[in-house]
Design a binder for these strands. Sequence first.
DNA 1: AATGGCTGGGTAATCCTTTACTCGACGGCT
DNA 2: AGCCGTCGAGTAAAGGATTACCCAGCCATT
Lengths: 331, 331
Amino acid sequence: MATISDVAARAGVSTATVSRALNGKATVDRDLAARVRRAAEELGYQPNGPARNLRRQEAAVVALIISDVENPFFTAIARGVEDVAHEVGYSVVLCNSDESAEKENRYIDVAIQERVAGVILSPSGTTTSVEKLASRGTAFVAVDRPLPEQDSDVVLVDTRLAAKQATAHLIAQGYQRIGCITGPIGVRTADDRLAGYRDALKAARLRSTTKLVRRTEYKAAGAHRAAQDLLAQAEPPDALLVANSAMAVGVLQALQERGIRPGRDVGIVAFDDAPWAELVDPPLSVVAQPAYEIGTVAARLLLARITDNTRPATTTTLAARLIERGSSHHG
Amino acid sequence: MATISDVAARAGVSTATVSRALNGKATVDRDLAARVRRAAEELGYQPNGPARNLRRQEAAVVALIISDVENPFFTAIARGVEDVAHEVGYSVVLCNSDESAEKENRYIDVAIQERVAGVILSPSGTTTSVEKLASRGTAFVAVDRPLPEQDSDVVLVDTRLAAKQATAHLIAQGYQRIGCITGPIGVRTADDRLAGYRDALKAARLRSTTKLVRRTEYKAAGAHRAAQDLLAQAEPPDALLVANSAMAVGVLQALQERGIRPGRDVGIVAFDDAPWAELVDPPLSVVAQPAYEIGTVAARLLLARITDNTRPATTTTLAARLIERGSSHHG
DNA sequence: AATGGCTGGGTAATCCTTTACTCGACGGCT
DNA sequence: AGCCGTCGAGTAAAGGATTACCCAGCCATT
């Protein structure tokens, strides 16, 4: 594979000049620069990234560590990050932590070792791995979930408020016994959605009971079991707040199996506006989160922090939007 | 940031010994190795990846370049690749080419520059960028779509046969005028699905007409327009073969808007078994592709090729499975 | 004409690890 | 006792790009 000195030899200049010419430094004669570029072209020269990164002590790469590649919410964030990063010549590498602190930790180690310019992550919960980033001075921003003990840039959705509004909407529609199926204990978004749900019950002076709450992983299977379980009770819920779209799949399946019709029999509102939400019968009411925007905002914050790591930490909270459709309306 | 010589100084040995100890080479005294590890621990030493990769001339990283991160088919492949790669200590970086030859090309350049160990990609169509990989001797394998002029490892689905079977199924159900909505010209899977559709028509001695075929990008919006367009014709189709699940969303929306009921009025079979396929009414008949398996197979092939780039090229073809549900049954 | 400033480009140090080569020490063998 | 093989560990040379520093030449100024 051609190196910079091959190019230098071919163009009849020193390696320093090749480097300057190829990186567009001003101090190179125009004709010479052209000759260098031609030589590079002819040899099919591609600079050696590791060598460059070693010397520069930084790579034009940002790592994006998300908790589930198969969740459209996170892939939409990824798109947002990618679009912004590409504009300024950064590459994005996507890592899937799979909601596992160990994998997250491992990817953070890799990111540090590869000396990436920055990291965007949806923290799994444990903060120790993130401390490593902070202590090394690697720029990072958290998305979707805050970092308790760190003052870092964070981009969040006001998910507690959104959950409250969604629940209030169900109450306003006349549902009486509203249940909640949310994510695992300790996952901040899951806790917040539950808190918002309770806020709404309290505001409406409805009694809140753990009998109507189930927590499982953010997947269809867990939500399916949870819904089965809730509906099999002596006093089953007449409405459900569901914490993401994968879970909504499980819940709707459970309803189908029991011959229960969403809306008329059991009101449903789920987080995340999946593309299929309007296709089911009745259409699914959802809380739409601005995932793409989370990505773009986070990327811009990260880029700012890469250039100046002393800037004060910020918290950006974006609003979610309740979209009322048939599944939360009686008859 | 601590370097290997800091560790060496702290442990009172040479850098060579530190390197050997940390990389588990046998020629280091057990006690010494322990001392080194402790020193590394205390300093929070993380080896410098670029320096290591520079020296080793290769990184334990594989790049996965897929054409759409938001398509569950590709994220399932990604999971498969990741699971296999992790087992042997490789990291996976995911790049989104967005069905654009230019972005694909850019990511291939990045992969070459970073000297990744190998590349798995779903080729967008143009082969020139892939030739760069071949000419540099970087291991790569293609997934989902073959590379016309390259003899490389390929992992495919027998999508033409699957399309034929799906169409034959529609014919067997009594549908007469079957249409096809598939991806862009030049994208191999789109061409194959169309070819399989025609195979089935021919086998049943049905006339094939371009009036019943529409090609658009592999997205909901394009398929929505295509379906609208097909159904607005004087002699509209009474069944549709749809080339992926995002397109299915667009098609089902179009049917809904026109008050047409899938199955009874217009038979539908779509590629990709989306999680919501059973939730719509009637449930959607699909061609399920073994996406996760494509990923695992591709990753294993890549690893084999990384260790021996002279091995002969192989083509693995996996079968898809038709799942008959309500949307392809009259009444 | 001599000096100073400026421009363009070369030399060589540097980034940090890995590893080929070398060497000392020790144990065993004759 | 002397020699050889083995083992463990150090020295130093890559690996390829960037860049601080330096120098040659040219123009302008006095």
